[in-house]
Design a protein around this nucleic acid. Structure first.
Lengths: 140, 140
DNA sequence: CGTATTTTCTCCAGTGGCTAGAGGAGAGGG
DNA sequence: CCCTCTCCTCTAGCCACTGGAGAAAATACG
């Protein structure tokens, strides 16, 4: 079967070369086979695995979750309950971030809408930053 | 006038002690005055400045933007156009993140909704991760 | 065959905005 | 005097990469 170097893997998957090495270093990808001159050598199985990782990252899954999902994907006979649980947890996390970001957006919008284009001494944005008490959300 | 130590400043503002030192180290706060035994000593002006920073962070402004906003707040006679510009840029950035996060949410939701609670070998989530081509958003 | 360019290697550092811990010195109270 | 609390500096870690230095090997071209 054909094997290819890291540059080709990068082009096939759209994942940058340093990122591929990073994934290997933290165990998302297994240690690559090496040529006699120490270059990494890959085959199509790695392409599939790396695309899986890229897709999961594009959906915002964290690396820890992806590690688990990869393990699960390799055990096709297990029930997919854990996959669903991970995904729903991720969804809840996204919803949380969305809610906080929306609240933030409203607060910033409300502030900037009051701007009357005068001097800084009367700028509402600066006043809000200087005076407002607790802030709209505890943190980002 | 009264002066106080870093712990008191932390309590008055709700900003943790290491964070205060971090703000000093990167120039958001000026180098604090020191007692004869080298402890930082603050007054109410620093309380105001730190609250300003905390409020701006709570609204999601980046540290670089806050640095500029602090400079502007110290020049009350300038027009507030730049303040408005920074704030609108921030708003646009929030909108951008909201849009991408919403798209992400829809993609994850659509995927998990197809879950039929069977074996991993037929799990739609795993299939999407393994097969889907370009992904819903280029990156987070 | 020699040279020039490209690809790959490893290792180290930086991103943002903190947060936490080690190890030590000074302050305040009983 | 001792105990505990607060403070000091310095360092490293978080997340998921990204980029660069310097060197070796592979490929391309004449």
């Amino acid at each position: 079967m054909k094997s290819f170097a890291i540059g080709a893997l990068s082009e096939k998957t759209g994942v940058k070369i340093p990122t591929i090495r990073y994934y290997e270093s933290n165990g998302l990808l297994p240690a690559a086979a090496r040529t006699d001159t120490n270059r990494r050598s890959y085959d199509d199985a790695t392409v599939r695995r790396l695309k899986f990782i890229r897709n999961a990252r594009a959906l915002g899954f964290e690396v820890d979750a992806i590690r688990t999902l990869l393990d699960l994907a390799d055990q096709p006979d297990l029930p997919c309950a854990e996959v669903e649980a991970i995904t729903r947890r991720h969804l809840a996390d996204i919803d949380d971030r969305l809610a906080r970001l929306s609240a933030l957006r409203e607060a910033v919008q409300a502030t900037v809408d009051q701007c009357e284009r005068g001097r800084i001494s009367h700028c509402r944005v600066i006043e809000v930053l200087a005076d407002h008490e607790p802030g709209v959300s505890e943190d980002l």
